[in-house]
Design a protein around this nucleic acid. Structure first.
Lengths: 204, 204
DNA sequence: CGCAAATATGCTGATCCCGCAAAATCTTGG
DNA sequence: CCAAGATTTTGCGGGATCAGCATATTTGCG
């Protein structure tokens, strides 16, 4: 099952995706060729397209993988836990800033975020990013269905929850990238999920 | 403002988008060349790319235009009307089945829906469709902000509402296309919006 | 070790998409 | 109505993407 082959494939996939992101953030989307990405990952250009159908998909792959970890995290929550508490917990564990954020030299973080902003502004990317979210949302719907005793094949409810959660994550992320001095992602996520769970009455 | 030029441009855009959809539903995404679409719309292939950056964008353009009409419809609702009632009304007027549904010969409708299913299953399209929704959602957020006295530049709320509504529409649409004998789109939409407005507690 | 399956690679062609400049078309002011 | 100016369409050309196919390489297993 998890032989050398599988692990090597996952490593190549991760290397390609990471190289695609790193180069794009540094140079800009159109200044990075598939050839560059393949070279940075140590494979042939043809192999790149064995893993990803497009540059955009390679860049989105990290988002997809992370979203899938959220689904796994949700499945790992205790069965008795209330749905929305479990969802929030799954997100907060999966979106915790990794150690590399602390390690990086001061200033590098701002530079990185600025590069991300430029990258995510690229129309050719936005679609694929959203698609990654949608694919993950479909899998999330399965997990929600299991947890709530609904049927992902017949009921709207689990899909509605998954799509709303996905939308909330996206809104929080864009809010984070839009703001000059943003609130921490953690708080934004919690707020968004809480509001979705409780309903969205107009303020005041 | 609305001189001959503007109208002609809108007409060409609509013709290209419609030709792209029609041909793709009939033959399949990869069997339709940009050249075919341009010819069907009576313009040169080069002109196609003056209007759309890609085949996928051309196909998504109808979705985008319809979503924009929803935003306009929302703005046209009376200012005193409660937010969620206004949103629902805006959708129901914009998504009402047009006269062409009735006119078409029996059987043609099923064939069309089947073709749509195949078309929307195309990965290369899904991203662009989602992006169209996201673009419309950003504009919807503006309208929601105006109506609720929030600030689209600083508050999360209007974006959260718009993203959730967008997600609800998507979930309803996929549910519609998934089901064998689907409920009418109108009911699905209303249900989804009502649940989003009221919150999404687990059933039972 | 040696074979079978999976993976990586090279080559190639169809297609896409955009920059550029010239031609065609519309708008506007007189 | 006409002529100048602005906008749009078109043709050409090139750079890049992406997938099919055949081949070579690597891996897993008996």
């Amino acid at each position: 099952m998890s032989g050398l082959r599988e692990r090597k494939k996952a490593a190549t996939r991760a290397a390609l995706s990471w190289a695609a992101i790193r180069l794009t953030v540094a140079r800009g989307y159109h200044a990075v060729l598939v050839e560059d990405i393949a070279q940075a990952a140590g494979v042939s250009p043809r192999t790149f397209n064995n893993y990803f159908a497009s540059k955009a998909e390679a860049i989105s792959a990290r988002h997809l993988d992370r979203s899938r970890r959220v689904v796994d995290a949700l499945r790992a929550r205790p069965a008795g836990e209330p749905l929305w508490r479990a969802i929030e917990a799954a997100f907060l564990t999966s979106w915790a800033p990794g150690p590399e954020v602390e390690q990086s030299p001061p200033g590098a973080h701002e530079e990185w975020v600025a590069g991300l902003r430029v990258m995510l502004a690229e129309p050719a990317l936005q679609g694929e990013m959203l698609r990654a979210g949608a694919v993950a949302a479909a899998e999330l719907a399965e997990a929600v269905a299991e947890r709530t005793g609904t049927d992902a094949g017949r009921d709207l409810y689990p899909h509605l929850v998954a799509a709303a959660v996905n939308a909330g994550v996206g809104a929080a992320m864009r809010h984070f990238l839009r703001a000059e001095r943003p609130e921490p992602m953690e708080r934004l996520l919690s707020d968004a999920l809480a509001q979705l769970a409780a309903g969205l009455p107009p303020p005041r």
